[in-house]
């Protein structure tokens, strides 16, 4: 019963995310495309939930929906030619070839990788503390990448300030 519910949820969310992702690419109305991008982010957050990654799901909504998609929408609102569709349509053949190649290579990699199987019963435990420990543990964790990422973000913030600073 649990498994059946999970698979139903997975397939619904998968269809929703792939469908809205396709619509993002195919729609000519940029604003609607951005809104469907938000629904795609939502569906992916739902997929995280079905995998038992509650922290990631929430961060997905908080960061992608609450910040990135919103800034995207702001960008569209400030763009004069937003209603005329994509201005880069002349690249469509090359972009199509590139994305098909990327898709093929990703499918190949996914098939080749030996994924560790997770048990759903175990996966429904809270993950926040585990993620925190994993990120900041001195011995077995990812403390160096974590700190490098924060320095990168700091540099980005300072760069933004320098860019907009008045002379």
């Amino acid at each position: 019963m649990q498994d059946a519910g999970l698979s139903i949820a997975f397939w619904l969310l998968a269809i929703a995310s792939v469908g809205s992702a396709l619509a993002v690419v195919l729609l000519r109305n940029v604003f609607r495309a951005a809104l469907l991008l938000i629904s795609c982010f939502f569906a992916i957050a739902g997929l995280f939930v079905t995998l038992g990654a509650d922290f990631l799901a929430m961060v997905q909504i908080l960061v992608y929906v609450g910040a990135i998609a919103i800034l995207l929408l702001l960008g569209i609102m400030l763009t004069k030619e937003a209603m005329r569709g994509s201005p880069f349509s002349r690249w469509q053949v090359g972009a199509g070839i590139a994305s098909v190649l990327l898709l093929i290579s990703m499918i190949w990699v996914f098939n080749q990788t030996d994924w560790p199987k997770t048990n759903t019963e175990v996966a429904l435990e809270p993950t926040t503390a585990a993620i925190g420990l994993k990120l900041l543990d001195m011995d077995a964790g990812f403390v160096l990448p974590f700190e490098i990422a924060s320095i990168l973000l700091l540099a980005a913030v300072i760069g933004a300030i320098v860019l907009v600073k008045e002379k």
Partner: peptide, 10 residues
Amino acid sequence: IFAISSISVV
């Protein structure tokens, strides 16, 4: 709470 309340902006 913060994730959900950020949706209302949309």
